[in-house]
Nucleic acid binder design. Structure first.
Length: 103
DNA sequence: GACATGACCGCAC
DNA sequence: AGTGCGGCCATGT
């Protein structure tokens, strides 16, 4: 199967209220080091796909989009709607991170 | 094939 | 705490 499909699969099973970094997403898809590629995949998701792309943020807890942009607002509102709180424009992956193999 | 470009990451300053 | 740099992988020119 193609690498992008592996990304889609993992993305699809990220629970509500949880989030992962691009690097984690790639790693969970058995593609360590493919963080940059993960971003590429999210950028070109099939039109109309129902995948929770908003649950993916950068490793430092900030979002990939510039503050104030449309996408930024959309992603943030969706995350907050799931109970995720932002502090100084960033969320705590330590608190909301999804790590299936741990805990 | 050589560069440039990204929804990135980690670590060094 | 912010910035820079090298490394990373697929795509586009």
């Amino acid at each position: 199967m193609e690498n992008r499909e592996r990304i889609w699969q993992v993305l699809h099973r990220i629970p509500r209220g949880k989030a992962v970094s691009y690097g984690q997403l790639a790693k969970l898809a058995a593609l360590p080091g493919y963080s940059r590629f993960a971003g590429h995949v999210l950028k070109n998701l099939p039109a109309g796909s129902r995948l929770p792309w908003h649950r993916v943020v950068r490793s430092d807890g900030r979002m990939a989009f510039p503050r104030g942009s449309e996408q930024y607002q959309l992603q943030r509102s969706r995350l907050e709607a799931e109970g995720i709180k932002f502090v100084n424009g960033k969320l705590s992956l330590r608190q909301y991170g999804w790590y299936p193999e741990e805990r």
